[in-house]
Amino acid sequence: MGSMWWLILIGLGMACAGLAAFLWSLRNGQYDDLDGAAERVLLEEDPDDKGRERREG
């Protein structure tokens, strides 16, 4: 029986971690621009990266 309790505890703990991660990502704005994230993968460099811009120009 003991092992089952451990499994339940681990299961709940993992679910809690998942929930916390989701709430964190929500607050962090990870879902603000889903379309943009999909398109930005295609860019060779991040145009937002100012350091690179300065070196070029």
């Binding site: 603000d32 398109e39 145009p47």
Partner: peptide, 27 residues
């Protein structure tokens, strides 16, 4: 699209005085 994002952000970032420009494609 991605090319639009790059064009808009680069153009804006080159303007004097602009510190940061970030496109949100969804909105």
């Amino acid at each position: 699209c991605a090319a639009c994002i790059a064009a808009v952000e680069r153009t804006l970032a080159r303007l004097p005085g602009v510190e940061r420009a970030r496109v949100n494609l969804s909105t």
